[in-house]
C-alpha cells in the first residue's frame, strides 16, 4: 500500500472534480432555457436540438427521499455490497431553484433526520476503492447545518 491515495471521480463530466466547490454539470436548452441533468443533447421540454453545458446550483431543498436499506447488486453498484458490512444510505431528489430536481445519494440515512423541504448542499463522498488503490468518489447532498 502506498501512502498516497488519489481520489478519482466515478465518471467524468457529471460533476466538477477536483474542486473546492464542486458543481453538478447539467445542460441548458438554448431555445427554452430548460435545465437537464446529466448533460444531454436534446431538450425533452421543447424538442430543441441545441443545449449548452452549465454548472448547476450547489444548494437546494429536499423534494422527496428514501433510505436504501439493502446492498444494491454489484455490478452495477461500485460500493460495498457485502450484507454484513453494508451501511444504509439516503437517496433523494433535491430541487435546485429555477433549474431541475436532481437525484442523489444523501449523507444522512436516518428517517428521523430527513424532512421534505429541508436545505441541502452538494458534497463529494467516497464510494469505493479501485484496483490501483485509488478512492472512487461520487456526488451526494448533505443537510445544511
Amino acid at each position: 500500500m502506498g501512502e498516497f491515495m488519489a481520489q478519482v471521480p466515478v465518471t467524468e463530466g457529471v460533476f466538477t472534480w477536483p474542486s473546492d466547490e464542486p458543481h453538478l454539470l447539467g445542460s441548458r436548452c438554448v431555445s427554452c432555457g430548460n435545465h437537464m441533468f446529466p448533460r444531454q443533447s436534446g431538450c425533452p421540454k421543447c424538442t430543441g436540438e441545441k443545449t449548452e453545458t452549465v454548472e448547476l446550483g450547489r444548494r437546494g431543498t429536499l423534494w422527496t427521499w428514501t433510505v436504501q436499506g439493502f446492498p444494491p447488486k454489484a455490478p452495477p453498484y461500485a460500493g460495498d455490497d457485502n450484507p454484513k458490512t453494508f451501511k444504509a444510505f439516503g437517496v433523494g431528489y433535491v430541487e435546485l431553484p429555477g433549474q431541475v430536481k436532481v437525484e442523489a445519494r444523501l449523507t444522512e440515512a436516518d428517517p428521523e433526520k430527513l424532512k421534505i423541504g429541508m436545505e441541502m448542499e452538494m458534497v463529494i463522498i467516497p464510494l469505493a476503492k479501485d484496483e490501483e488503490g485509488n478512492e472512487i468518489v461520487t456526488f451526494a447532498f448533505a443537510p445544511v447545518a
Binding site: T11, Q68, Y77, A78, I136, F139
Partner: peptide
Amino acid sequence: GDWYGATGL
C-alpha cells in the same frame, strides 16, 4: 450512464 448504477441509484 454507468456512474448511475455505480453510485447506487
